[in-house]
C-alpha cells in the first residue's frame, strides 16, 4: 500500500506510532481510565491517568525512606550451636567482595539498592513540578527516560523472593531471625507495585511535552 506523503513542515504531533509494531495511529482525547490499544499488535498506546502524579510522588518518597531504613537496619540473623551471625543488606552484596567476584558485589548493590533509589528520586524530580501544575524541570525528559530504561535492572522484588529461597535452604541448618530491614524490604515491594499501578507513561510524557 502506498501511504500519504507527509510534507516536511506538516504537524505530526497528533500521530502515534506503536513502539512495538510501528503502525500509525491518530491520537484522540481519551477519558480517564480508558485505554487505547494498537490496532495490529494490541500494545497499550494511551492510558490516561490524570491527577495520579501526586500519588506516584508520595509512593516514591515512601519507597525511598523504606530503602534507606533497609540499608541501615539489620537484615537477617542466624544462630546455631551457640554461634550467631547477622548481616545487613550491604553485607549481602559484600559477600562477593573477595577476589575476582568483587565486581559482582558492586552489581548486586546497584540492582537491589542504588537503582531502586535512583528511580524513586528521578520520578520525584520529574513529577513534583507536574503535580503542582508547573512546567517540568530541566532534563525531566532525560530523568524519566532513565526511569523507564533502568526498570528491568532494578531487582528489589527478585531479591526478596531470593531471600525466601535462601531462608528455606538455611531452614534445617540454623534458626533465622528476620530483622527490620527484611520487613522494610517486604513493604517496599508492595509500595513499588502500588506506585507502578499509578504510573502511566503516556500521561507523563504528555505532561513533560507541554512546555
Amino acid at each position: 500500500m502506498t501511504g500519504p506523503v507527509f510534507q516536511q513542515d506538516q504537524d505530526l504531533s497528533g500521530l502515534i506510532a506503536c513502539p512495538r509494531c510501528d503502525v500509525l495511529h491518530r491520537a484522540e482525547e481519551l477519558a480517564d481510565g480508558q485505554r487505547a490499544r494498537c490496532a495490529r499488535c494490541g500494545t497499550v498506546l494511551m492510558w490516561p491517568r490524570e491527577g495520579a502524579f501526586l500519588h506516584v510522588v508520595a509512593f516514591s518518597f515512601t519507597g525511598m525512606i523504606l530503602m534507606i531504613g533497609a540499608i541501615f537496619f539489620p537484615f537477617l540473623e542466624i544462630a546455631a550451636r551457640g554461634l550467631s551471625h547477622k548481616s545487613s543488606i550491604f553485607g549481602v552484596a559484600m559477600a562477593f567482595s573477595d577476589g575476582f567476584l568483587a565486581p559482582l558485589a558492586f552489581a548486586v548493590l546497584t540492582m537491589i539498592v542504588a537503582l531502586p533509589i535512583f528511580r524513586f528520586a528521578a520520578l520525584i524530580y520529574t513529577l513534583w513540578p507536574l503535580a503542582n501544575g508547573r512546567p517540568a524541570y530541566r532534563h525531566a525528559a532525560t530523568a524519566f527516560r532513565l526511569v523507564q530504561e533502568l526498570q528491568p535492572w532494578a531487582m528489589a522484588e527478585i531479591f526478596i523472593i531470593g531471600t525466601a529461597v535462601a531462608l528455606v535452604k538455611i531452614g534445617g541448618l540454623a534458626t533465622v531471625s528476620l530483622g527490620p530491614a527484611f520487613w522494610a524490604f517486604c513493604v517496599l515491594i508492595i509500595v513499588i507495585a502500588l506506585k507502578n499501578s499509578f504510573v502511566s507513561d503516556w500521561t507523563i510524557w504528555k505532561a513533560i511535552g507541554q512546555k
Binding site: V92, A95, V108, F159
Partner: peptide, 19 residues
C-alpha cells in the same frame, strides 16, 4: 530478569552463613 534470583540466593547465604 527473574533468573537473577539464584545470584541473590548465593549472596544471602554467603553473607549469612558464617558460623
Amino acid at each position: 530478569r527473574w533468573s537473577m534470583i539464584d545470584v541473590f540466593v548465593v549472596a544471602i547465604l554467603s553473607a549469612l552463613v558464617q558460623l
